[in-house]
């Protein structure tokens, strides 16, 4: 088994083996796997994962870049392939192609303040950013994580959020759309949390991931505070059959989300995202 060689047959996966599985939420699991010859990845990249007999989908990598052996994915069970993936237990084999896509430019943000805004499962694709920030904390300015979930029961990575929250060198705020009696935190959209966050807009790089509507409001909110459009980065989701620019499904106006993205800056996305059904 070898790492996929893009110049021979990029549509043929390698065999990966599931080595661990954690249930995160009622419909979300995180699993770890191993592949011989895994080349490593950059934050924001994704793999095309295949369940034999079911199909293949793109899933972003949610683990730390520094872990060079385990490949970690967090998956919500929403369709036939994600359902089959979520059901894989340690020892199971699956197909893997990747990693693909343009990453979050995290290291380029060294020396700057960093704001991470995530909504729902959007916390998974930005988690590698947070690991990088924590591992090299001194390299960055002020760090803020703003996270929004639909309800307290749908807060992803709750334990880690608590750990990060207890750190003195990082601001973490969590909000929910619908509170329960036991919830004492913020209620409302995640972008409302921007107002209280501590960062210097002119020296800030922002990473935003979640539903499109949330990313638009997040980027607009950051722009209003004075963050440059080229310093705001989003991760787009589109239908992908190949992940490598051959199938055409992920086109968003002039760009292929798979090979030009999935991470784009707001200067590129703003004019495209304002067009309905582009």
């Amino acid at each position: 088994m070898h790492a996929p060689d893009p110049h021979t047959d990029p549509m043929v996966p390698v065999i990966a083996r599931v080595t661990g599985r954690t249930r995160e939420l009622s419909d979300v699991v995180t699993f770890e796997m191993e592949v011989e010859g895994w080349p490593g990845f950059a934050p924001g990249q994704f793999n095309m994962l295949s369940v034999f007999g079911v199909g293949e989908i793109p899933i972003s990598i949610s683990g730390p870049v520094s872990d060079t052996t385990r490949i970690i994915h967090t998956i919500r069970d929403v369709g036939p392939v994600s359902h089959a993936l979520a059901a894989l237990s340690p020892g199971a084999v699956l197909g893997l192609r990747g990693p693909y896509g343009a990453p979050w430019p995290v290291q380029a943000a060294r020396g700057r303040d960093v704001v991470v805004i995530a909504g729902g499962l959007g916390l998974a694709p930005v988690r590698p950013i947070l690991y990088e920030l924590m591992e090299n904390r001194d390299a960055y300015g002020k760090v803020t994580l703003l996270y929004g979930a639909r309800s307290p029961a749908e807060i992803l990575f709750e334990k880690e959020l608590g750990d990060w929250r207890s750190r003195l060198d990082m601001g973490v705020e969590v909000t929910v759309d619908r509170a329960t009696n036991a919830w004492h935190g913020h209620v409302g959209v995640v972008t409302a949390l921007l107002r209280g966050a501590d960062f210097t807009p002119a020296n800030t790089t922002a990473f935003v991931c979640g539903p499109e509507i949330m990313m638009r409001f997040g980027a607009d909110g950051l722009t209003d505070l004075g963050v440059a459009a080229t310093d705001i980065h989003l991760s787009m989701e589109r239908n992908m059959q190949c992940g490598i620019g051959l199938c055409g499904h992920c086109q968003l106006g002039p760009v292929f989300v798979c090979k030009d993205g999935p991470v784009f800056d707001w200067a590129t996305m703003k004019p495209l995202m304002r067009i309905k059904e582009l």
């Binding site: 549509m11 295949s50 034999f52 007999g53 079911v54 199909g55 293949e56 059959q241 190949c242 051959l246 199938c247 055409g248 499904h249 086109q251």
Partner: peptide, 26 residues
């Protein structure tokens, strides 16, 4: 027009599966 969709084709009599690329339309 180059777009394609990838489909999984499974055999009726065994566990073998095939990945097939077909023309797709926007």
């Amino acid at each position: 027009c180059f777009c394609t969709t990838v489909d999984e084709v499974t055999s009726l009599d065994g566990p073998e599966t095939e990945r097939v690329n077909s023309w797709a339309s926007c």
